[in-house]
Amino acid sequence: MTMSLDGAVAIVTGAARGMGAEHVRGLVAAGARVVATDILDEEGRALADDLGDAVMYRRLDVTDADAWDTVVAQAEEAWGPVKVLVNNAGIVMFGPIESLSPSDWQRAIDINLTGVFLGMHAVVPSMRRANGGAIVNISSTAGLQGYANLGAYVASKWGVRGLTKTAALELGPDNIRVNSIHPGPIRTPMIDGVSLDMVKSQPIPRVGEPEEVTAMLLFILQDATYSTGHEFIIDGGTIVGATVDVPDT
């Protein structure tokens, strides 16, 4: 059984660049009509212009509940009920717990976790009108394990993982699947300036590409129709374990 994306109405957050932009391109190629949202207006409009009539750009601060309602209403007015939501927007805050400011902590939680809640909260009535749909929340390997100096990011991404499971339980009867994707290091602006020496010890010793995450997204939407509430990991093997050098004997 597969889910057709031909003509499906989708909303993607954090869509102006990086993984979000690639997700928009992949959805359009699969036949969807996409509301690409972000706060990076220039880049978002350029993406929509490049992809044509199947995409419209709308500014969206994912922490603004009223703005979410507006975007969903605009999607419905233009194309009909929303079938797909990709909660992709996110930020990272660096620093140890003792020096991370409360305001930076709160900003990460507001965007990475509350933004996901608000997106689902806003879109569920529309998905019911569409007789079902699929929500994919972009978490991280930081939603599966700890990382030093990334306390706010880790907490928010674990929260996304748990919220995904609760939503899957609640929305299954409405024919709405909810899953999370957990990328490792992916070549996006978010990792600019970050040391990537860690990838050398992965089973696949390289940084991932945005289109590889999009391929996972499309698999979840189109083919993984009996999966809900689960983690789909795309990390080059980051969290598989550690290699131990065998001592000379």
Results as ranks from 00 to 15, higher is better:
residue 112 N to V: 03
residue 105 W to F: 15
residue 101 S to G: 13
residue 102 P to Y: 03
residue 128 R to M: 12
residue 103 S to Q: 15
residue 153 Y to I: 03
residue 143 G to S: 11
residue 162 G to S: 14
residue 128 R to G: 03
residue 157 K to R: 13
residue 111 I to G: 07
residue 132 G to K: 13
residue 117 F to I: 07
residue 151 G to I: 08
residue 136 V to W: 08
residue 129 R to H: 10
residue 153 Y to T: 01
residue 108 A to V: 13
residue 105 W to M: 03
residue 158 W to P: 01
residue 133 G to P: 13
residue 135 I to N: 05
residue 102 P to H: 04
residue 137 N to A: 09
residue 139 S to R: 08
residue 113 L to I: 07
residue 116 V to T: 15
residue 169 L to W: 02
residue 158 W to D: 01
residue 160 V to P: 12
residue 162 G to K: 08
residue 108 A to F: 01
residue 141 T to W: 02
residue 112 N to F: 01
residue 129 R to P: 01
residue 159 G to R: 07
residue 126 S to F: 04
residue 146 G to S: 12
residue 139 S to Q: 04
residue 110 D to L: 03
residue 132 G to F: 10
residue 131 N to A: 15
residue 165 K to T: 14
residue 152 A to G: 05
residue 118 L to D: 02
residue 126 S to E: 09
residue 159 G to Q: 09
residue 136 V to H: 11
residue 170 E to W: 02
residue 155 A to N: 09
residue 111 I to H: 00
residue 167 A to P: 11
residue 149 N to E: 14
residue 154 V to A: 09
residue 150 L to T: 09
residue 143 G to K: 07
residue 101 S to H: 08
residue 130 A to G: 12
residue 102 P to W: 06
residue 143 G to E: 07
residue 138 I to F: 04
residue 113 L to C: 07
residue 165 K to S: 04
residue 161 R to F: 00
residue 101 S to T: 15
residue 157 K to I: 10
residue 118 L to R: 15
residue 130 A to H: 11
residue 164 T to G: 07
residue 167 A to Q: 11
residue 115 G to H: 08
residue 99 S to W: 08
residue 148 A to H: 06
residue 126 S to R: 13
residue 148 A to Y: 04
residue 103 S to G: 00
residue 164 T to H: 09
residue 149 N to S: 14
residue 138 I to S: 00
residue 170 E to C: 01
residue 137 N to V: 11
residue 100 L to W: 01
residue 141 T to M: 14
residue 118 L to M: 10
residue 121 H to K: 15
residue 165 K to W: 00
residue 138 I to C: 03
residue 165 K to C: 00
residue 115 G to Q: 09
residue 139 S to P: 04
residue 169 L to C: 12
residue 148 A to F: 05
residue 148 A to S: 15
residue 154 V to P: 07
residue 170 E to F: 04
residue 157 K to Q: 06
residue 155 A to I: 05
residue 145 Q to S: 13
residue 162 G to D: 13
residue 136 V to A: 08
residue 170 E to I: 06
residue 111 I to E: 06
residue 103 S to H: 08
residue 135 I to K: 02
residue 138 I to A: 00
residue 143 G to P: 11
residue 127 M to S: 12
residue 157 K to L: 10
residue 103 S to M: 12
residue 144 L to Q: 14
residue 108 A to Y: 03
residue 112 N to C: 12
residue 130 A to L: 09
residue 153 Y to V: 02
